[in-house]
Each structure stands twice: as C-alpha cells, then as structure tokens.
Computed example of a mutant assay.
Amino acid sequence: MQYIAPIGIGILYALLMSLVREPHRRRLNAVMVAGAGAAYLSGGGMGGWEFPFTALVTYVAFRGLESWTWIGVGWLLHTAWDLVHHVKGAPIIPFLHTSSLGCAICDPVIALWCLRGGPSLVEFVRGRRRPEGSEPTPTTTAG
C-alpha cells in the first residue's frame, strides 16, 4: 500500500487540478511546484544545499508560469530531491520515515501529467476530449 497510495494521490492531484480552467491551471501548478521546492527548508536535512535547490526550483517554477514542460521538470527535480532525502534518512515529514519515498513515487505521476500539458482529466473521464478553452456545443430542445 505504501507504493500504491502515492500513485493514487498523484492521480487525485491531477484530477482535482483538472477542475481549474486554463490558463489558471498552469499558473496554479507553477505555484504548487515552487512550494514543493521549498518543502524541505524547515527540516534542513541537506544543510545549506536546501537553499540552492529551492532557488533552482523557484526559477523552474517561474518558467512554468508559461510552460507545462517546465512545471513537469520541476516535479522531476523534486522527485530527485525526495530520493536524496529518503536515502539520507531526512524525510519531508519527520515523524513519517517513508514520507519522502512516497513523495518520490507521487511526484513523477504529477510530472507526467504536466509534461502532457496538464490536460483536463475530468474531460477525459467524461469522454469528451475538447481542445482547452473551447466551449461545448449547446444543445437545443424542441418544444
């Protein structure tokens, strides 16, 4: 379950984010990856290296304001940082020893969704794959 739940969390994240319309969805995800980049700062498990990593992810997130690809790259960078923290034994949630491993499993799911352009999973589930920004064709009823 410790390996399956993070995948579900990543899918749930993408599904919930799909409720946000573009271009706000992309911008909100850029902010989210910036926040994730700073998540380890308070624990300081990697010492002074936490600051350059946070600066790097902040730059990537800034680029992500206009590009899903950069947001995906940011989540992949966070995945790598999660793995470093897991191996070092400095988890993102101090009292959950496998929390960084769970994050390292969840983040690539989110990254893949972002690298695909952050498509609406709600529309996918509904079976109506319309281009972003287009409105559904109104249906008229006789009567």
Rank of each mutant, 00 (worst) to 15 (best):
V84M: 09
A111F: 01
L65H: 07
G8W: 02
H97V: 03
V33F: 05
P136T: 01
V122R: 11
P52W: 04
P94G: 12
Y40Q: 13
V109C: 09
R130S: 11
R116D: 00
W81K: 04
V122W: 14
A30R: 07
I105C: 07
T98Q: 07
E123F: 00
I11N: 00
Y59F: 11
I11A: 13
Q2E: 13
G37P: 05
T137S: 08
L12P: 09
E123C: 01
V57C: 12
M46E: 13
C114G: 07
I9V: 14
P119A: 08
T58Q: 06
A61D: 09
L121A: 04
F124N: 01
G64P: 09
G37V: 02
G133H: 03
T69N: 03
R26V: 14
Y59T: 15
V31I: 06
G72H: 02
R126E: 11
L83I: 15
S120F: 00
V20W: 12
N29L: 09
M1G: 14
G64S: 09
W70R: 07
G117Y: 01
S99G: 13
T140R: 11
K88Y: 03
T79D: 08
G8F: 06
R126W: 01
W49V: 04
F124H: 07
Y40I: 01
T137N: 02
G8Q: 03
S18T: 05
L115H: 15
A34C: 08
D107E: 02
P131R: 01
L115P: 14
G133V: 01
A142R: 06
S42E: 07
A80P: 00
I71K: 07
S67K: 11
R26E: 02
I7Q: 12
R63Q: 12
A36I: 15
P52F: 04
A5V: 14
S120H: 05
G43T: 05
G89V: 00
L101T: 00
P131Y: 03
L96M: 14
R130V: 15
L112D: 02
G10C: 06
R130N: 10
G72M: 07
S18E: 04
G72T: 15
S99Q: 06
H24I: 01
G64F: 10
V73M: 05
P52N: 06
L28K: 02
A5D: 03
R21C: 03
R128E: 12
R130P: 14
R128F: 01
S100Q: 02
P23M: 01
